[in-house]
Write a protein that binds this DNA or RNA. Sequence first.
DNA 1: TGGAATTTGTTAAAATATGTTATAATTTTA
DNA 2: TAAAATTATAACATATTTTAACAAATTCCA
Lengths: 178, 178
Amino acid sequence: MIRELRHQKIIEVVTQKQGITVQELTSLLKVSAMTIHRDLRLLEEKGILQRVRGGVVIGRPDETKEEICGYCGKALPARTRVMLFGGSGQAVPACCVHCGMGLLRHERELSAGLTVDFLYETVIDLERGYYLYEPQIKVCCVPSVLAFADRGDAERMQMGFGGKLLNYEELKNCFIGK
Amino acid sequence: MIRELRHQKIIEVVTQKQGITVQELTSLLKVSAMTIHRDLRLLEEKGILQRVRGGVVIGRPDETKEEICGYCGKALPARTRVMLFGGSGQAVPACCVHCGMGLLRHERELSAGLTVDFLYETVIDLERGYYLYEPQIKVCCVPSVLAFADRGDAERMQMGFGGKLLNYEELKNCFIGK
DNA sequence: TGGAATTTGTTAAAATATGTTATAATTTTA
DNA sequence: TAAAATTATAACATATTTTAACAAATTCCA
């Protein structure tokens, strides 16, 4: 059997079964354990699978860095994440605007900050965003804040879900005080 | 046998079997391994197939099958994706409810269907969801449909963004007709 | 037909893949 | 915690595949 086909087979069965042992693979593919080990190493290097002792599991490629919120320690949801760039260029991520603001309380010197539009997931400059403070949705931390690139979108969300519509300055005052 | 015919035959069998060894080709085509090697090199140079040690495979070898929408071919956004499970258990993904409904038009026999709440990204049963048809947000395909687990959430979105609020049956009628 | 160009086959060697064994690392267990 | 069991790695031997070089066969064209 061609190695590439064997690899395909491995990927297939691992995806299907969420994981499999080296032993099972040797009997399934009729090759030695060493060959399986080598295969798995190659596939892991490509980021396709994750090797664990005894076998493999499906590799979650976006979990490779395992970035966590610098404030609360949670994972970073794609829709609400915030990225703060400190004065010396270092980047600190936060899971949502709430935690981003929490970080800001300590790290005053900010060269830039980004977040993500709740509706479209486009990246927006923190300073240019519009925010819904304490709407009737809690997708991440509380007090909840949703970010929007467009004021109209923020207003439309407000119609349904309430909350206070703020710009960046107002948001900062809300969290940090004057 | 003319070389061109042999090439056609190779392409045919490789496409059919997803890949084949040089050995198999030699016995199939009654030529020496060297000739097969030369053939394969030519075919690879034309970009028709991919040579790997031991034989050939179609396309790019053991690349993860990037999941794409079964209807429009786009990538699958986490927030809007749909998964349809056919009668025999096979899963077909779609990028959004729009495309999911499009698929449904052909594959009538459905054992289950899942999608994702637009606000919370929780997985919901297609049949139990509430849908906003043609709201003033276009996050994926048009006509746009947003899915919600909770009717109240759907109503609140409707306040701001308009659109028609539908349950699953009504949604189906909307796309497929009676 | 003769001879050049092309294709194919043969052989040896280089490159690569696989299997085997011993050893190291890790987990399980008593 | 130490011993036993399991799993991973390294190093080497073996097997397989690919390539290069050349010889033989075939095709093409004047």
